[in-house]
């Protein structure tokens, strides 16, 4: 509290400072003579990756006290835009790079898979590839058609542009405008909540999230995807059919601290952190 009073009384001075800072370019750091790293790294992007990077950054800072790593969030496209504008040195994206993004360099830090979830009380054991397509395109509207109880299906999908939706469409060979959802959701937890509160719902979410939530007693159940059980092991072995890399991207040259952070984030030294956030460590 004491600190607050001091800082606030200096407000005018600080505001002046802020405008001064506007004129001096950013936060890029450099290695100093004796090999210790100094500087500040700003990382922005995917909200899926942000909690993991926050933990990785904390450990990195402990090893390199001269470097401050600020992790921001706001979505994959924000990560790409901020890196291109050089507002951030590193962007987080929850998908692979697209052809039009070849100006960026990507480092995979983890893998994530997506799977279908239904309510725990839904006794449908499995859905074939075509049944899933029929449900999401609205050709099948009732659970009894695919062997479930008598109820209208609540199809939960994600908003346009979300990386999970893109992966889902890719996997099932669907176009955006072919999907006819009953609900559109934002983040993974929103999907989990929507399904846990609705015995007739079906959604696709990140495997790690779903595995964690169902182990915590949340009323959801995962369905196999094309006959493959959704487990982190299956994602790691490459056997699972719908997985995506979680990438860190940079634009152009990398300063020593950024380079050090990238190799740190992709190394075995953060594997426990990756697993603690329910992702699969990237193959190296």
């Amino acid at each position: 509290m004491r600190r607050r009073a001091v800082t606030l009384s200096n407000l005018p001075a600080l505001m002046g400072l802020a405008f001064a800072a506007a004129c001096s370019p950013g936060t890029e750091g450099a290695g100093s003579g004796d090999g210790t790293l100094e500087g500040r790294i700003t990382i922005t992007g995917s909200s899926t990756v942000a909690p993991l990077m926050g933990e990785v950054a904390r450990r990195f800072e402990a090893e390199h006290p001269g470097v401050r790593v600020d992790v921001q969030t706001g979505g994959t496209s924000r990560g790409i835009a901020d890196v291109r504008r050089r507002v951030a040195q590193i962007g987080m994206i929850s998908r692979g790079l697209r052809p039009e993004e070849e100006d960026l360099d990507a480092v995979a830090v983890a893998l994530d898979g997506i799977t279908l979830i239904v309510h725990r009380d839904n006794h449908v054991a499995t859905l074939s590839h075509d049944q899933v397509v029929d449900i999401f395109t609205g050709r099948v509207r009732r659970w009894d058609t695919v062997g479930g109880r008598e109820a209208e299906i609540t199809v939960v999908s994600k908003a346009d542009g979300r990386a999970t939706l893109e992966l889902f469409l890719d996997h099932f060979g669907l176009r955006r405008d072919e999907i006819h959802p009953s609900l559109v959701i934002g983040d993974n937890q929103h999907g989990i909540r929507s399904v846990a509160g609705d015995p007739a719902a079906i959604a696709y979410v990140s495997i790690g999230t779903a595995a964690f939530e169902s182990s915590q007693g949340r009323a959801i159940r995962m369905l196999p995807l094309d006959g493959v059980e959704p487990t982190l092991a299956a994602v790691q072995s490459g056997e699972f059919p719908a997985s995506r890399p979680l990438n860190l991207v940079t634009f152009g040259d990398r300063s020593p601290p950024v380079q050090a952070f990238l190799s740190f984030a992709a190394s075995e030294r953060v594997q426990d952190l990756v697993e603690a956030q329910y992702f699969v460590p990237a193959p190296r």
Binding site: S47, A50, P51, T73, N188, Q189, H190, I192, F212, Y278
Partner: peptide, 8 residues
Amino acid sequence: DLAMNVPG
């Protein structure tokens, strides 16, 4: 973040 983005 905790409610919508971080499992658990």
